[in-house]
Simulated scan of single mutants.
Amino acid sequence: MESVRALLESEEVKLVVSAIEALREKTSKQQTSAVLQFHELVLGEKFQAAEVLAILLDNETYYPGLKPILTAGFAGWLIDPDKQYNALRFDAMCRAAMAHMSEAEKRAGLTSRRWDVKRDVIARYIFTGTDFLREIYDELGGYNAFQDASSLEIAGIVTQSEITAINTVLRAMAYFHHGADLWGKGATLPPSLNRAVLMLSGLKEGLPNFSDHYVSRSLLHKRWTASKSTLALIYAADSIKVKDETLFKIILAQKLSYDQHKKYFSRWVCRARYVSSHIFSCATDPELRDESDKILANGDVERFSPPPLTPVEIKLLEKHFIKPVASAS
């Protein structure tokens, strides 16, 4: 059997490569390269969330597979932004990459017919794309990484306690939102996490199964601190209905798809900017707005209403957010 080197240097292989390059040139559309390479965007020392979001929002045409894989990575980052090497983010990107390659095989007819080399060439080098194979497939670790990702369950990565912590954060954000609306009328104290915690503590007294829905004060503070750059985005996503669920529930289940959900992206980000400009602008912690604006950049905003409160929560809001009336002397 000939050595790999001999095969690589053979005239036959050179002809095959030339033919594939000619085929790519014939079938490819004009494409724009990403400002940063895939590795720099999502696999470097820091996940480049602002740059990734800018790519997802623009109308540029990049190589096949880039935006779907970045969408999966961005969803993973939203759930757990605090880690440099995020297992959830990496797994989500691997799954999205496998889906892209599977779709390429379907387009080439490999799933409905017996394998043949012509369809395999089209699936791999045209529909999957050599840029994808070089920039994403290889950088993620290839077959071994994909095999590991396929053996994991999302439920094993995002635990129930983490989901409860995130839901507690979302409820605290709702209190922030109501507080900001009242603040605009000049009737309240500025929204703060401590006041939201006081509301949750008051809610705990009358809710026997409180721990099934919300985490303790210390765990809330921990999750809140780790999520400051994502709070506006996850709260805005929770306000957008997608059929019978919210955009955030889709993100939490790691089912966010660029092709299926990109029509919601602009509205999502406009609402997140509203969170930053309306809610965080009057909060006692200036870092909330600063961290959000680093990701969201400037642009349009879309106002939306906070979720309704229960009668008990309304009383707690009045107790902890309304300014006390000064007594007459």
Rank of each mutant, 00 (worst) to 15 (best):
K67C: 01
A253V: 05
L66D: 05
V117I: 11
L317H: 11
E9R: 01
T71F: 01
P64F: 05
T27E: 06
K315F: 10
S227M: 15
P68F: 05
T159M: 07
S239W: 04
Y264E: 02
Y175S: 02
E105N: 05
F321Q: 06
A75P: 12
P308Y: 03
T188V: 10
S28R: 12
L296A: 01
A187K: 14
R124P: 00
P308H: 07
A108L: 09
A34F: 04
K29S: 06
D259P: 12
S218C: 04
W268Y: 02
L7P: 09
A165F: 06
D285H: 04
L8N: 06
L231S: 05
D285Q: 07
A297T: 08
A87M: 06
L252F: 06
F176R: 06
S216T: 14
L219T: 12
R217Y: 00
P208Y: 03
Q48A: 14
R303T: 13
K14I: 08
C282K: 12
I157E: 08
G299F: 09
K106P: 00
K204A: 15
A50R: 08
A326C: 09
L170Q: 01
A253T: 09
R124A: 08
G76A: 12
K118V: 15
F321N: 03
Y143S: 03
L41K: 05
D244G: 06
E103D: 01
V35M: 02
H320G: 06
H261N: 11
Q254W: 04
H178L: 08
F47C: 05
K255Q: 13
Q160G: 09
S292Y: 12
K255G: 10
P191T: 13
V242N: 00
K323T: 13
I69H: 00
I136Q: 07
A54G: 13
G299C: 03
P81C: 09
K249S: 15
S277Q: 08
Y143F: 13
Q260N: 13
E2P: 14
V17C: 05
A96E: 04
T225F: 09
E135H: 08
S10Q: 02
A237G: 13
E287T: 05
I166F: 09
I163L: 05
Q31L: 15
W224M: 07
I240F: 05
N86D: 07
N167S: 09
V42M: 10
D238N: 15
Q30D: 14
P308W: 07
G109P: 11
G142D: 03
D212H: 10
A187N: 07
Y274N: 14
H178P: 11
A328H: 10
Q48F: 07
V16H: 04
D285Y: 08
L200G: 05
V17G: 03
E139R: 14
N59S: 15
V4W: 09
L88A: 02
R24W: 10
S18K: 03
G109H: 04
K263H: 10
G65R: 02
R124S: 12
G73P: 00
L198M: 12
V269S: 11
Q30L: 11
G184R: 02
W268G: 04
H261Q: 08
T111N: 14
E287R: 14
E302Q: 08
F47Q: 03
K106E: 14
S150G: 10
G76C: 11
V215Y: 07
A187M: 15
F146E: 14
T128G: 04
S28K: 12
L88H: 02
I322A: 02
